[in-house]
Design a protein around this nucleic acid. Structure first.
Lengths: 142, 142
DNA sequence: CTAATATAATTGATGTATCAAATATTGATG
DNA sequence: CATCAATATTTGATACATCAATTATATTAG
């Protein structure tokens, strides 16, 4: 892959590779997947949300939300109830146990991310953030 | 996700998000997944390889290789045969049609990656490459 | 030579994502 | 009010990855 490819192609390849590695290690270190923790993080910041709202903020498929929540419900980390004023809508909220558990996940995550970005100073982090934002904007136009 | 998080955590999140977007658009633009094209690219550069060797260079699970190849074989893009001197080993090679098709995939990929990295000059690409390499090295030690 | 071990590939179970179709409920219109 | 359209969620089919167990073959030690 490294030879006979444009520099851009190598970057794309490395991004892909990196992400696979990160996802795998993330789960190993924190005990939860990135997506799952992101979902929990959103719930952490509110009292109650509809699945629809969750789905939109997470930019993930409806079906995936349903399935995540089903599992989290089974583990008693969240509760769901129908919105009284509109029975189409399901409202989701964390249980107390859920809320507690997230704190420790977040700590693990912070430890993880610090080690991944070890050796980067503030200025470099900003450069990287800027790069990621620019790529994100480029993607939107594809 | 953007609030109440360390800069590092935001970067991790954005990397994750970016990759999801890229994967999705990549497939839409090129008609093939990143992994699949990477596999084909490796095959493109050699005459014949064992599945084992493919698996190692791609850093992907054995089972995933088997299943990719099964599909590619069904589409007549590759052929497989047992290595005569060791029947445990399966050797894989592209068909002529496979070889042709890859060329057009690669063109699409180049178009795609160029648009994703639009606005980045040579020096910035090097900076990004360097960053990705450093992160990769950090991950190895986690 | 035969039993134990190692290697390569495959298969089955599982996790997480997608899309498309089905279901339930609400709202709006003739 | 009856029907039709819109909205939220769920389910089923598919894709692609993992791990663990299985199969087939080769190698090695006794």
């Amino acid at each position: 892959m490294t030879n006979s490819c444009s520099k851009e192609a190598v970057i794309l390849y490395k991004l892909h590779f990196l992400n696979k590695e990160i996802s795998s290690k993330f789960e190993g270190c924190t005990g939860v997947s990135q997506s799952r923790l992101e979902l929990l993080h959103h719930l952490y910041q509110v009292d109650e949300v509809s699945q629809k709202a969750l789905q939109q903020v997470m930019n993930i498929d409806n079906a995936a939300i349903t399935r995540h929540l089903k599992q989290l419900e089974a583990k008693e980390m969240i509760v769901r109830r129908k919105k009284p004023s509109d029975n189409r809508i399901t409202l989701v909220s964390l249980t107390d146990e859920g809320r507690q558990k997230i704190s420790s996940y977040q700590e693990e995550k912070q430890r993880f991310v610090t080690s991944i970005l070890k050796g980067f100073d503030e200025k470099e982090l900003d450069v990287l953030l800027d790069i990621l934002n620019r790529i994100k904007n480029n993607i939107k136009e594809v």
